[in-house]
């Protein structure tokens, strides 16, 4: 009961902690869209791979400024593959955005993301726990796909 009250109190708009976290989330979303647009224009200007290089270099410097280097854990090689995928993501986005625009690119990426994770969860790929696909999930995916079609042809 007391935990329920605590949760309720936490969700009252006006709790500075919740408001600040909500504001941070919204700002992050705005930044995602801005970032994709800025990167694409940079890519058009200096080339998609060159753009991806600059994005990662600048990100490295910025992240290093935030994360004060303390004890550095030794990271296994298989976990470093994310960086390779990051280069591909920025490059592909740099090619796609000038053609489709930011909104459609983001919608397609949401659709592909949700579909892929649904399939991956259903079969329990990557050694992760298995979640069988539900009707509710299929309904949600259908809404997303319909939305993408409307955005594409709107």
């Amino acid at each position: 009961m007391s935990s329920l009250m605590r949760t309720l109190r936490r969700s009252i708009p006006g709790d500075p902690d919740v408001l600040l976290a909500g504001g941070a989330s919204i700002t992050a979303g705005v930044f995602v869209a801005l970032m994709i647009r800025l990167n694409a224009t940079l890519g058009e200007h200096i080339g998609v791979l060159e753009g991806s290089f600059v994005v990662h270099l600048v990100g490295t410097v910025f992240a290093a400024l935030i994360v004060l280097p303390r004890r550095q854990p030794v990271v296994p090689g298989r976990l470093r593959r994310g960086g390779v995928l990051g280069v591909a993501i920025v490059m592909v986005a740099n090619i796609v955005v000038p053609v489709l625009g930011v909104a459609l690119t983001l919608c397609l990426s949401v659709a592909a993301n949700l579909s892929f994770s649904t399939v991956s969860d259903h079969f329990g790929w990557f050694g992760l726990p298995q979640f069988r696909v539900s009707r509710r999930r299929l309904f949600g995916l259908a809404l997303v796909v319909l939305g993408v079609v409307l955005v594409a042809y709107g």
């Binding site: 459609l104 397609l108 592909a112 892929f116 991956s120």
Partner: peptide
């Protein structure tokens, strides 16, 4: 570009 954008979503996940 459509398929590339979809591909990017998959790489993203």
């Amino acid at each position: 570009a459509f398929f590339l954008a979809l591909l990017n979503g998959v790489i993203g996940s």
